[in-house]
Design a protein around this nucleic acid. Sequence first.
DNA 1: TAGATTGTTAATCGATTAACAATC
DNA 2: TAGATTGTTAATCGATTAACAATC
Lengths: 206, 206
Amino acid sequence: MDQSIIPDIIVGRIPLYLRELTRMAEEGKVITSSHELGRRLGISSAQIRKDLSQFGEFGKQGTGYNISFLVEQLRRVLKVNKVWNVVLVGVGDLGRAIAHYTGFLDRGFRITKVYDSDTQKIGQRVGDFTIRDVTLMVNEIRREKIRVAMLAVPASDAQSVTDLLVEAGIRAILCYAPVSINVPEKVKILYIDPVLHLQHMTYYLP
Amino acid sequence: MDQSIIPDIIVGRIPLYLRELTRMAEEGKVITSSHELGRRLGISSAQIRKDLSQFGEFGKQGTGYNISFLVEQLRRVLKVNKVWNVVLVGVGDLGRAIAHYTGFLDRGFRITKVYDSDTQKIGQRVGDFTIRDVTLMVNEIRREKIRVAMLAVPASDAQSVTDLLVEAGIRAILCYAPVSINVPEKVKILYIDPVLHLQHMTYYLP
DNA sequence: TAGATTGTTAATCGATTAACAATC
DNA sequence: TAGATTGTTAATCGATTAACAATC
C-alpha cells in the first residue's frame, strides 16, 4: 500500500462492499472470495481485489477473506467503527421518514437533533425527537461538535441552510433537495434525487 | 453524431444538466454557455460540450445554448417529454413520503398505483392513493403496461418483490432497500441508500 | 501435494481535458 | 469587425481487466 491518495471512485465502492459483507455475515457465512463477492455485487473479482488492496492485505491466498475480519477492517477504513452524531434539518414528509428510520445506528450514524423553521412544527415530536428551532442550530452544532448533517428542506432553502451548516462546522452533508449547492472545498456534499435515477433509466426504455 | 452506443456515464449526467437548466429557466435566464452551466454544476465546460454533442448540435458558436430549446431536447433524449406511469411498492414511512412527494410529475413521472402486503394497510389511503393488495400487483401492472417501479419494501422482501415486478413487465426499478438485487439484463435497476453516501463521506473526515 | 485464491504488474480500455478551427 | 463560444480532434489522464507468481 503506497502513500498516494486513494481514488474517490474506489472509496465510494467500499461502503457497498461493507454492506454486502455484513449481509453475508448475517447469513452465517464465515469466508468469502473476491469471486463470490463480485458475483453478488455485479463487479469483477479483479476490481474487488484491487480496491481492497488499496487499504491493506486482508485476504489469504488459496482461502479468500475472513468476512468478519474484513468487515472490521472496512469499518475502520470508513471511520464507521464509531458512531457519528448527525443532525437532520427539515421535517416534511421525507424528513419525518428519515427521523423514523432505524437503519442508521448499526452502520455508524445516529441522529441526535432535528430542526425545522416552521413554528407550527417546533416543539412537536417526530419519532424519538423534539423538533427544534432552526435558529438554535448553529450554536448547538458548534457546542456538540457535530460534523455530519442530512438536509431535507425545500430546494429554495437548501443553499441558505447549507451556509449555516458550514458556518457551524458541519463537514459532510447529505442533501435530499433536488438542487446543486455550493460548499467550500473542505466540506463534502452528496445528493439524493430519485428523479435523476428515474430519468437515467428511462433513457434506455423503448 | 455517430451511431455508436453512448457511454452510460454520459447518459447519467444528462438528468443533472436537465435539472440545472430547468432551474435556470425558472430564474428567467434565456441563454447559457457550457462555462456557466459547468460552473454551477462543478463540471468542466469541455465535458459538458462533449456530453451534449453526443446527442446533437444544440448550441450556437459565439452565443451558447438557448435554455428552453436545450431543455426540450434533453427531455426528448431522456424520454421524459411524456409522463411515465409508476408503481410504488411498500408503504412504510419512506413509501408514505414518496407517495406524498409532488416533485415527480413535472419531471416525467406519475405514481398511479401503490401496493403493500400488510392487510392492516390495504384499503387505507396514502396521499391520493388507496393502498392496494400486492397480490393484485402483477396482473394490474401487466394490464396497464407499466414499465417503471419504485421499491420501498424491507430488505428481506426486496428480491422476491423484484421478481414479481420483472414478471409483470417492469423494466426500470428504483430500489430504496439497502441490498443488491439480481435482475435480468433487460431490466434496469438503480439504488438509493443514504448510508452508502454517509460512509463515503466519513472516509474523508478527521 | 493439488487446487484455489490473493495481491500486483502490465496491458487494455475508456473518460476527461486541452486546444483550436469554425462561425455566430 | 472583434469577441465569444461551440463542436471536435488529439493528447492526456485514470480506471479496469487480464494474467500470473506467490502461497495458503
